[in-house]
């Protein structure tokens, strides 16, 4: 089972630093050094986060001359919105069913008495 190798948008945005990186490059691609300057954590740590973001499909790297620019792939965020909506619907259905159940057993109790 490949739990360890899981790479998806959910993992990408689970970490606050990675969310900040995405927010930083959402509207303008930046090179690695420029991104790292915005963080107090070490550059290797920032570079690892970017690597994960790439593997999760959230960041694309473009070569321009001697520079590599990191670009955010915001389409992937739609998956998150879709999941939240689907999971909300799932729980709302369960809670409707719970409501019916609670009404049913309480009415039964009353009619028993």
């Amino acid at each position: 089972m490949s739990v360890e190798a899981r790479r998806d948008v959910f993992q990408a945005i689970a970490d606050p630093t990675r969310r900040q990186i995405i927010n930083l490059i959402a509207y303008q691609p930046m090179n690695l050094n420029a991104i790292a300057e915005n963080f107090s954590i070490s550059r290797p740590a920032v570079s690892q986060h970017i690597k994960i973001l790439m593997e999760c499909g959230m960041v694309m790297v473009r070569q321009e001359g001697r520079e590599r620019y990191c670009e955010a792939r915001l389409d992937a965020l739609k998956e998150v919105a879709a999941w939240v909506e689907q999971y909300r619907e799932f729980w709302n259905t369960q809670f409707d069913s719970l409501d019916n159940y609670l009404n049913r057993i309480q009415n039964n109790h009353q009619s028993d008495q």
Binding site: F10, I13, A14, R19, I22, N23, A26, Y27, A72, L74, L77, V80, W83, V84, Y87, R88, W91, N92, F95, L98, D99, L102, N103, Q106
Partner: peptide, 16 residues
């Protein structure tokens, strides 16, 4: 401009 937020969900329901 915050484009990413944590994927999270909160539902509040009341039951009689």
């Amino acid at each position: 401009n915050k484009v990413t937020q944590k994927a999270e969900l909160r539902i509040v329901r009341q039951f009689k």
